[in-house]
Amino acid sequence: MTHLPYIVASYGLAAIMALVLSIGAALRLRRARARLAALEQTNNRSAGTPFTP
């Protein structure tokens, strides 16, 4: 392949960016979901009424 370093650099940048963005979003979503579930559970237990959005 001609211009291999340039191609590798481009695809490498794209891969790094995709990984950082998608893993970041997945982790954030998981953390938020777990935290919300825990909070709603304690809330329901103490208040006795289910949380409705």
Partner: peptide, 22 residues
């Protein structure tokens, strides 16, 4: 995915600040 997380986070904030919270 990020917007879903943001909605959940805002709900967490609302729950934490609500006086009802145990």
């Amino acid at each position: 995915a990020r917007t879903r997380a943001a909605v959940m986070e805002s709900r967490i904030r609302a729950l934490l600040s609500s006086p009802r919270r145990g």
